[in-house]
Design a protein around this nucleic acid. Structure first.
Lengths: 341, 341
DNA sequence: TCCAATCATGCAAGCGCTTACATTGAATAA
DNA sequence: TTATTCAATGTAAGCGCTTGCATGATTGGA
């Protein structure tokens, strides 16, 4: 007697359709290798029994699972959300399933999650930023699981990557700020430790300053975790200091939104009294009053391209190098000329 | 010779440590059943070889995978992101791994994702809202995978659920609006088809109207997909109609943010000319100018409690009924008295 | 000193699937 | 008619792990 309780197996389907398990398997995986009549009989049985393949078994028997894993620092950041949505869309199009997992910005968690995803049969991984323990790269290589790095691009890293150059992007924005006469520039940065995007952005500002013969030595920089309230607090700290900056550049739009609020609660008008900039151009940037000057990042494009690139990697084209995406600076209300006083 | 290439297996570890695979397995899963000396030797070998268990095999051999799957309509919605983060945090605490997958608001996708997660060995599932094809519930029951419904609560559904009552919550808010003298109320709702949260919220408004002997018949209601721009467009449509409402209640904060922008571009001042409300109390609600009157939902609490509840379910306490969370109405700047004219 | 109880470990049977290889039988060629 | 080929299907060997049961070692009580 075939198991009648519990979930049906390939074997149950085979029995019901009067064929071997091999035929059922072929029906499901390469339908053209099975004659039409048989196929229909099998699919009928599948339908009737409500059969779902057991991936555990599939993982063991076959190599491919058509599953891609993505590990992101946080789901709370709209920027990843947007890109991931596009990523998933494209994967789905190509018949892959996306499984997402987040690290809450804790590097040790990332390793955990990588292991979790790999041991659950992920064919490939999407990782954010390239800054991580070399151990992890070794592990990935050893496991022979291709990983694509997204949201970051550096000519120095030869790993497959897709992103934009955080450093030159921020430098571009900083130049705009400097062009408007600002010389004392404050920075509210995300925590740079273990976060290449944050550190590159900071470096970009410094690049621009030195290009313009401005000193970066006493640059007021506050590093703070991602979050609106943190941005607000940082802004207050910076602006209350003696000789406060005339422009504050933030590591991302959320910190900038907080900074805007901080300025307001200090009675400062943006951009009349102080200018504020962000990075990412999330929806919020347009919504804010004043609207936020920021760097526009092509999230959707990045997600879609990342998907294609990763699939190519998984399917064998091992030769993909870093891909650089174009950003653009969006000048909006929050950036103005340096105050005259 | 043991395989030297490719990823190490339990067997390799066993050989390296000079024990049986059973012992290695026990070391990893119930360390106390193995004597200390042996355990150390085994863990050493695990470390050296860089062994990672193959979950495929685990899924087959054992029943449990300590994996929970969550299927959300979209990652782009901050409200889910926030709750999920808390959900994951709690799961992690308890030794579970969370895998997330999104449907892009397409019901057919949900079924796909459910199957995908189950066949990949998820011990339990977190689902959003209770409105879905009964087939799916049958399938879940048949597969014997517990599912917890979150972000929704209805006394009518006896499935395990954790959430708040969207209908009475919105009714509460509507009452506040009515209390301020508004009689002509417009509604910008998310698409209600297949979305119980959206339809319940809409029903809540109608409840409040009829409680106050106001007619809901010619209530201007626009249904539109989730999105800032959609909210803006809807607001314009509503306010351009003859005899426009004095207050517009939106199905969520993002639509409300769009509505605010729409009002502004129409030259209407909020709340002087027209009041606007949202739902969810995402961070954005506080940031906007004017700040948004909305319904505060305890995302974090919901995520955390959902995790505990789901684990309880997975671990056998089958008796969990719906849990109702308390919401609160946040009155902020965007709601004012009815304009006098 | 001997036996039973207790504990640590090993043995081996699957779990459900894929796939290399074997088998069958019909179609084609000679 | 018979040999040859080839498409359709079946057979069965694992994939790497967990776990019930068996085994052997250790300990304590009589």
């Amino acid at each position: 007697m075939t198991s009648n309780r519990s979930t049906p197996t390939l074997d149950d389907v085979a029995k019901a359709a009067g064929v071997s398990t091999a035929t059922v398997s072929r029906c499901l995986n390469s339908p053209d290798r099975v004659v039409k009549a048989t196929r229909e009989r099998v699919l009928m049985a599948v339908e009737t029994l409500g059969y779902t393949p057991n991936f555990g078994a599939r993982i063991m028997a076959a190599k491919r699972t058509f599953t891609i894993g993505a590990i992101i620092p946080t789901m709370e950041n709209a920027i990843f959300a947007r890109g991931l949505q596009a990523f998933q869309e494209e994967l789905h199009e190509q018949g892959y399933t996306l499984l997402v997992s987040s690290t809450a910005y804790r590097p040790d968690r990332e390793e955990e999650q990588i292991r979790a995803l790999i041991s659950r049969g992920a064919d490939g991984l999407l990782l954010i930023g390239y800054n991580r323990d070399p151990e992890i790269y070794n592990y990935l290589d050893q496991q022979d699981v291709p990983a694509l790095i997204a949201w970051a691009y550096s000519p120095l890293v030869e790993r497959p990557a897709i992103g934009f150059d955080n450093r030159t992007s921020m430098k571009l924005l900083a130049q705009e700020v400097i062009n408007r006469g600002h010389q004392r520039i404050g920075v509210i940065s995300a925590v740079t430790k273990g976060n290449d995007r944050a550190s590159e952005r900071l470096a970009g500002i410094i690049d621009a300053l030195s290009d313009n013969a401005l000193s970066a030595v006493d640059l007021p920089v506050i590093q703070t975790p991602y979050g609106f309230d943190n941005g607000e607090a940082a802004m207050k700290t910076i602006m209350k200091a003696p000789n406060p900056p005339t422009a504050v550049m933030c590591g991302n739009d959320v910190l900038a939104a907080g900074a805007l609020r901080g300025a307001k609660s200090l009675g400062l008008e943006v951009p009349h009294d102080v200018s504020v900039t962000g990075f990412d151009d999330i929806e919020l940037a347009r919504i804010l009053t004043p609207s936020l000057t920021t760097v526009h990042v092509p999230h959707g494009e990045m997600g879609t391209k990342a998907a294609s690139a990763l699939i190519a990697l998984v399917e064998g084209n091992r030769s993909i190098g870093p891909v650089k995406l174009q950003i653009s600076v969006k000048i909006r209300e929050s950036l103005g000329p340096v105050p005259i006083n």
